[in-house]
Amino acid sequence: MGEYFTLIIGAILVHNFVLSRILGICPFLGVSKKLSTALGMGGAVIFVMTLSGAATSLVNHLLLRGHGLEYLRTIVFILVIAALVQIVEVLLQRFSKPLYKALGIYLPLITTNCAVLGSAIICANDDYGIMKSTVFCGASGVGFALALLLFASVREKLELARVPKCLEGAAIALLTASILAMAFSGFAGLG
């Protein structure tokens, strides 16, 4: 229990995927303009990450490890994750049109989102079991969603700010992200 608690806190706060590991920056910057879409995107990422965490660790344990094929990990994981995201996209389009519209091109972006792949590889590297991988990936997703949420709420405020012309758009977003990352670095050692 304690182990899982540390794992979850670690994944959400200390080694936050966006703010500490600097993974998955594209959707982080792209979908954080409005709080509502950020929430949707966060949900989608949590979902995809948990699912892919389970699937990849399953593949890792059943197919690759036993046969000495660890060197195929990256390509197999990409394959599995890409297929998963495709399926999620189709399902979303069918069952949640508004969310699908809001996510737009960012859903395919999850496919190549290094955060998803990164979490899977971290699990494989650290030899997490299937259960632990799933929990870790889910928590990482929550961490991603949290960062996205915080960032989106700040950016909604930035909409109203008089940012200098040369810093408008991605520049100020990255600056803000850097400050947020500095703030999160304070959690070091917590998990």
Binding site: H67, I75, V76, A83, Q86, I87, V90
Partner: peptide, 17 residues
């Protein structure tokens, strides 16, 4: 292995679509 995995996943996507 890669081929089989690919085919399986493609099948899954196809079915969902």
């Amino acid at each position: 292995l890669l081929t089989i995995l690919g085919v399986l996943l493609a099948l899954a996507i196809g079915l969902v679509v």
